[in-house]
């Protein structure tokens, strides 16, 4: 082993358990570690993390650095950066991986600039260059119309990984690992940022990211009324409704259900895209769905390049027809 140097992955914890992206990071981290003969460690930052460290071990981390502090309950840049720097100092990694999440999108570039190194954001592919051991980072550019393979000239090499782009690590409770608790001193008084309130969208039922089926509507739906009909279809499919950017911009549906490059990344069993043209920015958020069905009046629409099944039809007629068919097939 390379004097404790190796790969460090940031694991987000929610409700005391490893998040999905954390498992995906441990998956790719394990692969990179075994390809390069390096050690895999994990870092967890938060408040009341309890057993999550052991869960990271079960998912392949050989060492887990835990920074647990009441003031780390909410994400604030300065506090998290301080914690992350402390861990990087202790672990001395060559590669640091985070998720392309609310936290990762802020913490990663902050850390890169603080450590005077570089980062590649939103990677969909990571491998070690067999010739020189550097990390090859593949990320979408131009809204996903092209892919760039990048390297970082300095250490540590930082990258964020797109959600649902890589297979999660398998759990194996027989794995052994070391858990290291690190203390940091943070004071609320010195903080330049403060959380003073919050607002949560309670209308949200099942989280889009966890839904088995999603019916997504685009500009072609034309208004709020149409989304009600999509809702009925989603109900029959046991799923939820999402939208493209124009649908959210026009307030036909809540901003929190935007799917795409700058919205949610989803991977349901079934994705029904209705009145959506299939821009690369939208597809960045749903291309990983198992089965994609497209409903569009334009047979040339780009969405049919991604879809597994297509219907060229006006949604006004096919959506209600589908909904009642599904009702019948359930009833009988």
């Amino acid at each position: 082993m390379n004097q404790g140097k190796g790969i460090l992955v940031h694991c987000e914890v929610s409700g005391g358990e490893l998040s999905g992206i954390a498992k995906e990071l441990l998956g790719i981290g394990s692969k990179l570690a075994s390809d390069s003969g390096k050690e895999l460690s994990a870092v967890m930052i938060g408040a009341g993390l309890n057993g999550a460290g052991q869960e990271a071990v079960a998912h392949g981390a050989q060492k887990v650095y835990v920074v647990d502090h009441p003031l780390l309950a909410d994400y604030l840049t300065d506090h998290y950066l301080q914690a992350m720097e402390r861990v990087v100092e202790a672990a001395g990694p060559e590669i640091v991986l985070l998720g392309q999440t609310t936290v990762g999108k802020d913490l990663t570039p902050q850390l890169a600039f603080k450590l005077n190194t570089g980062a590649s954001m939103d990677c969909v592919g990571l491998e070690i260059d067999p010739d020189n051991g550097r990390l090859l980072m593949t990320k979408p550019v131009y809204g996903g119309n092209a892919l760039a393979v990048q390297i970082c000239r300095t250490d540590p090499q930082l990258a964020t990984v797109r959600v649902k782009a890589m297979p999660p690590a398998e759990r194996d409770d027989s794995r052994q690992g070391e858990i290291v608790h690190l203390d940091i001193e943070i004071s609320e008084a010195a903080a330049r940022q403060k959380k003073v309130g919050e607002e949560r969208d309670s209308a949200l039922g099942i989280r889009l990211e966890d839904a088995k089926a999603i019916v997504a509507g685009g500009r072609g739906i034309g208004g709020e009324e149409g989304f009600k009909l999509l809702g009925h279809l989603a109900d029959e499919l046991g799923g939820v409704v999402g939208g493209s950017r124009p649908a959210c911009d026009n307030k036909w549906i809540s901003d929190v259900v935007q799917i795409g490059l700058t919205g949610k990344i989803v991977g349901p069993e079934l994705y029904v895209a209705v009145g959506i043209s299939g821009s690369s920015q939208h597809m960045a958020g749903c291309a990983g769905s198992k089965v994609i069905v497209a409903i569009n009046t334009d047979p040339e629409a780009n969405i049919f390049k991604y879809a597994h099944y297509g219907i060229v039809e006006d949604w006004h007629s096919i959506v209600p027809a589908l909904t009642s068919r599904l009702k019948q097939s359930k009833g009988g």
Partner: peptide, 15 residues
């Protein structure tokens, strides 16, 4: 400069 682009390509997509 920290990051260098080694390669740029368009992903193939066959319907």
């Amino acid at each position: 400069q920290k990051i260098e682009i080694l390669k740029l390509y368009c992903p193939e997509r066959t319907s």
